[in-house]
Design a protein around this nucleic acid. Structure first.
Lengths: 252, 252
DNA sequence: CACCTTACGACAACACTGTTGACCTGTTAA
DNA sequence: TTAACAGGTCAACAGTGTTGTCGTAAGGTG
């Protein structure tokens, strides 16, 4: 097989497709994202993507070794898009909160890509850029290196894990998703108080609350804990903790 | 089609398979779990499962409407197994910590099943039992209903999300997992300080820290925040926050 | 014990999936 | 002008979930 995929830099013979399209890694990724967005998560298959591009499915294997590779490229593009819409203000807590929410929203906009990429390390440019940026925010805020790394890890894992969780339900076929909602209403909301007193007592709240994502609350929790650590560190290191921390613990 | 699946209670004609196996919902679920565990996540397909059971694939559709149904049954069995090994002591914080860690461990023990079941609501017996139990612990500890529901939601989502995240990497084929680790060492640990100062400064810590799960830390964070809320609630409601919480809200 | 009903396992087919080896042709460098 | 070869195309393979149809053996009934 020698090597089927040629590194993008070396590409030059840009022969058009039978239908007149000139393929490129970029065009493929963009089309894949559009496909996911328009026709749902299950719409992304090599064959469908080929059809959408106006090319034979097997052409894609000249650009990506396998579907997984393509997914990583898509994931990195998503990271890039999120990063580009983010405007840091200098307030580390507000900035990280904003970034976390944007990452989560980005994941929800492309559920299938998010699910796949949550546990993968792409090692591509945008991912590296994101790591560098977040570490920069934390170290800039005054966290010592060990602490910065630990908080970075917690922050990114939380964003990815919740993003994947919420994406996964969003990526389910519509009828399955409706069936889930029906389970809450039909099963949980109707359990008798004598066998399931706690569920019965909280049924209304339960049904309402479970329909929402728990990410924003979890994010604020994490940032709150980090802020606490920072204050502690500042006090200990001589600086007499002056900043009164005006964070408005608002949970959407 | 009338109805292909017969409710388990009504089953009586237990005709054996050509290969002599007598099918049952239970046997199918157990075999599926074994299959997932032994041969990886992709090993679970209707056809493979049929082969492992010694039955025609289509027979399974007499027991489950579609694969999704089967996955829910598997997920519920997993919940049940976790719940059965858990012994509550009456100390809500310790109990929830223990349960969270057990759920996480259970997920890691069956990585492929955990990934698939993390985002689904089964509505089956064990899941209902788990919800009732956790709500009971929280309400027994003195959390008002609204708070109990909110904390329950955060707790369960966190356990599921981290369980799925950590399971997903554990479920990757071995060579892919090694490739990921290599990315950290080969890419991140070698970025020059002039273009990526923050990564370069923390590279060693970063590589070491990213190899571990962030769940235990995240769990303690959550429980700490909940404990803080509880103290606040008690003070406000007149009780001068002294009681060391002896409530034995043990739910079987 | 024989009969009838029907649950349920088996079979074959459908439309789909990712992936690969062989082939052929247009582009480009020499 | 020509030769090399990148890269698009084709056909095929092995797999997937799912369903309509059919035959048969198990069970209740008389």
């Amino acid at each position: 097989m020698s090597e089927r995929v040629v590194p993008p830099a070396a590409r030059q013979r840009r022969r058009p497709t039978k239908q007149g399209v000139v393929l490129s890694e970029e065009l493929i990724v963009d089309t894949a994202l559009r496909l996911i967005e328009e026709h749902g998560a299950d719409a992304l298959s090599v064959r469908r993507l080929g059809r959408a591009l106006g090319a034979d499915p097997s052409s894609l294997y000249r650009y990506f070794r396998h579907t997984d590779d393509l997914m990583l490229a898509i994931a990195d593009e998503l990271i890039g898009r999120t990063l580009r819409t983010w405007r840091p203000t200098g307030d580390w807590r507000a900035d990280l909160r904003d970034l976390g929410l944007r990452m989560h929203a980005g994941a929800l906009a492309h559920p299938r890509a998010a699910v796949l990429s949550s546990y993968r390390v792409t090692g591509r440019t945008y991912e590296i850029q994101a790591v560098e940026t977040i570490l920069g925010v934390l170290r800039g805020a005054g966290f010592p290196d060990a602490e910065a790394v630990r908080i970075y890890h917690a922050f990114i894992d939380q964003a990815l894990a919740h993003g994947a969780l919420d994406s996964a339900s969003a990526a389910m076929p519509k009828d399955a998703r409706e069936a889930e909602a029906a389970v809450w209403r039909a099963t949980y909301a109707r359990l008798p108080a004598d066998t399931h007193p706690h569920i019965a007592a909280t049924a209304r709240r339960l049904v309402a609350d479970m329909a929402r994502s728990s990410y924003p609350a979890a994010l604020d929790l994490l940032l709150g804990a980090a802020a606490g650590r920072l204050a502690e560190i500042r006090t200990r290191s001589g600086q007499p903790t002056a900043t009164p921390d005006p964070s408005p613990e608002a949970v959407t």
